[in-house]
């Protein structure tokens, strides 16, 4: 339940990011900026869903406070820093920097997603057992951030 919902959200974020990259490659600057900002908001919302709901519930149910969820929070920090750097590069019209940071960001993001999908989400699904559906509803209702 959680695995499918969060994995689908990963894919939506991935596609938004590559659409922004593709638009910038095609010199469609305004479109790229708009798409990247959308990606930025959606990915931060994804991290918020995890940090403000999913991880806390998991930690309460299992008592694992300093385990995998803490590691994922640390990786979110690193990914957020890179997303900020890319946003700045776009706003300053430093497109080579955007692509350069984007390359390492993509590898790091995919490693992060892989670990969540293969390890953490299945653990959360087991911990939530029958309450998975309710949690998905709660996550869907979480407000997204305001446009930049």
């Amino acid at each position: 339940m959680i695995l499918e919902f969060m994995r689908d959200d990963h894919r939506v974020c991935d596609e938004l990011f590559v659409t922004a990259e593709n638009a910038l490659s095609d010199k469609k600057i305004d479109e790229a900026k708009k798409l990247y900002e959308e990606f930025y908001l959606l990915t931060n919302h994804h991290f918020d869903m995890e940090e403000k709901q999913l991880f806390i519930t998991f930690e309460k149910r299992t008592g694992m406070m300093g385990g995998p969820t803490q590691m994922m929070r640390y990786e979110h920090q690193q990914l957020r820093a890179q997303m900020e750097a890319m946003l700045k590069a776009l706003r300053d019209d430093k497109y080579d920097d955007f692509f350069g940071i984007g390359e390492s960001f993509m590898i790091m993001l995919q490693q992060h997603n892989m670990k969540e999908e293969q390890m953490l989400y299945p653990m959360i699904d087991r911990a939530l057992s029958g309450d998975g559906e309710l949690m998905v509803e709660t996550l869907k209702e979480m407000p997204k951030g305001n446009p930049l």
């Binding site: 385990g67 995998p68 994922m72 670990k115 953490l120």
Partner: peptide
Amino acid sequence: MFNGLSLEQ
């Protein structure tokens, strides 16, 4: 088993 989740590892 959770160590693998950390980039620090």
